[in-house]
Simulated scan of single mutants.
Amino acid sequence: MAQWESELFAQRMAWFDFAPVPGVRLETRRVPPAFELPARLVVDDVDAAVAFVGGDWPERVARGRVRADLLTAFPAVDHATRAAIIGQLDPWEDVEVDLLLRAARWFAEHPDHGLTARQVPVEGMGSKWLDQRGLSLVQRLIGLEDLGLRASRPPRVHLTYLDPDHLAAGGRRFDVATLGDGAEPAYRPGVVLISENRDTAQCFPEVPGGIAIEGSGAGGGTVAALAWVHEAPVRLYWGDLDAAGLEILAQFRRAGLDVDSILMDVATYRRWERFGVDHGHDAKPVRAGSAGVVHGLRPAEQELYDLLCDPARTTHARVEQERIPLAEAHAEVLRRVAAALGRGS
């Protein structure tokens, strides 16, 4: 008997020898001349499947059914959403599920509360629980995308003044622009450089008429709300050479801020790739990104993004902008400024 025939015979016997449970049966088919093979396993319903699989599934299904009954108190939840929520709640303890339901009822009863997430008076709910754990689930339970929460902290942008005349006259080097509270800088910049990382912004060399903004590794909605940023003749962005850095750049543009990137192309990556890393500060692998066109990236940036997303890539996943000497970035900023002045003459 050939090896494959021996393996097939063993598998066939294993199927015939398994102990069935009520609601689960094995159907077979006959292969000429008279050879019977397992064809399919038929499971009548969920209860039969749970009994057949065993393990912790009976407990999980029972728990899910109880929670499904609780969710019927929220008419905004359709069947598909209810199933998704039950799956998300599966690892939660009952006490936390109860907290979620009470929080959802509170928001449904107080649509005009005017509170921050940390001020919501639900007994047993920690001040950070809603933001960190339950916000999206509460929204889905009561069918609202906006729970009417007031921002607990006004959005702020940290600035570094780079103009040599301003600094020589004793002007402050660092500042904070708070939205809605007079966000005007000490002077109207001719050059705005948004830096993904704080150290780079704070240590950037002098640039006539320049202001460096700490991007803080986030999207550009707050920075884009500053009118004086849009009015600057030269608007630049510099971030890490990795998938996340390029996606953040694209977010700034999608927020309505027209910025040019510096040192975020394949040539720069190749030059400094020897200082690259594959793991973040938390020792977790650097996220590779999703291959495909990213809305908001320009051709040279998209080329780098494609390289970083290539599964066959053998180079590092990230080159942090701090690994590139500030002198290189400073020279590039001055070159962009000179080019802009030349176009305007």
Rank of each mutant, 00 (worst) to 15 (best):
Q321K: 03
F16G: 09
P311E: 11
Y161M: 01
L89V: 02
Y237W: 07
P189T: 04
A244K: 05
L115A: 15
A168G: 08
L179S: 12
R298N: 08
E123R: 00
R156Y: 14
R25Y: 04
R133T: 07
G217K: 06
L236H: 11
G210L: 09
A76S: 11
T116S: 09
F252H: 14
D240N: 06
W228S: 08
P299V: 02
L101I: 04
R29P: 10
P32D: 14
G215M: 02
T222H: 11
G143C: 06
R118L: 02
L249F: 03
F74P: 04
C309T: 13
G126S: 13
L249S: 01
A80G: 14
A250I: 07
G239E: 00
E5P: 11
E303T: 09
R254A: 06
D181I: 07
S261N: 09
G289D: 14
A267H: 15
L334M: 14
Y269M: 01
T268H: 04
E301Q: 12
D163L: 03
A331Y: 14
A283F: 05
I213M: 12
R30G: 06
V176C: 15
E59A: 14
R118T: 02
T178S: 04
V43S: 15
V97P: 00
A186D: 03
R60C: 13
A212G: 05
P299S: 08
V120Y: 01
H113E: 04
R153C: 12
V50Q: 00
L41M: 01
D278R: 00
D44C: 10
A19F: 03
R63Q: 07
E109S: 06
M13R: 05
P38L: 07
D242N: 09
G148F: 07
E303H: 08
V333I: 03
H295R: 10
A73D: 14
G245S: 08
E59C: 11
I194C: 04
V286W: 06
W15F: 01
E328K: 12
G114D: 05
Q132R: 09
E322W: 10
D310I: 06
V21P: 05
L308F: 03
D44F: 09
V234N: 15
R274L: 12
D17W: 02
S6M: 12
H330I: 09
D265N: 01
G114P: 13
W92S: 13
G292S: 10
T116C: 05
L179V: 15
L308E: 10
D306E: 14
A224H: 05
H279Y: 05
R153P: 08
H166S: 00
V157Y: 02
A103C: 05
A51T: 08
W129E: 03
A103R: 13
A244Y: 07
L137K: 06
R253M: 03
Q132H: 12
D163C: 13
G180A: 03
V97H: 00
L149N: 14
A2M: 10
R253E: 00
S261L: 03
V192E: 09
D260A: 01
R335H: 09
A327G: 10
D240Q: 05
F18V: 09
D265E: 01
F35A: 11
L149W: 07
P205I: 01
R198P: 06
A250L: 11
E109I: 00
W4H: 15
G239D: 00
E123T: 04
